[in-house]
Amino acid sequence: MPVVKTVELPLTRQEDVVAVRQRTRSLGVEIGLTIVDQTKIVTAASELARNTVIHGGGGKATIEIVKEASKQGLRLTFEDCGPGIPDLERAMQDGYTSGAGLGLGLGGSKRLCNDFAIESKVGKGTRVTIARWKA
């Protein structure tokens, strides 16, 4: 899948989550996503970026403008080298949380995107990739 533009951002502090939201928004505007689609991917980005900072012990976000056939979209990857998620199936369920959150982050993010993929190895880390395509 051709990548038109790549932006890499660190995710170590809470403020970095804000930067990821803002960068995702500006790239969404750049490719002409509707305001609703922008808001959906930015919200998903916020949930996943926070997971990287809090549960993953920090990591990085990669935001890309990608092209497939004639359509354009945003693809976001969140990577950490944290403890990993032992039970992915359970982690994806709404309401399940290992921390103090609402447990909506993973399942909710999936609903807000067109593509969603998660890989996690206990003791190694977690990588989540999402994409939202221009309608």
Binding site: V36, K40, E47, G107
Partner: peptide, 14 residues
């Protein structure tokens, strides 16, 4: 609340 925020919140599950 902005309409796009309302749509997103409900889809998020909130």
């Amino acid at each position: 609340m902005q309409p796009s925020v309302a749509i997103t919140l409900v889809e998020l599950g909130l």
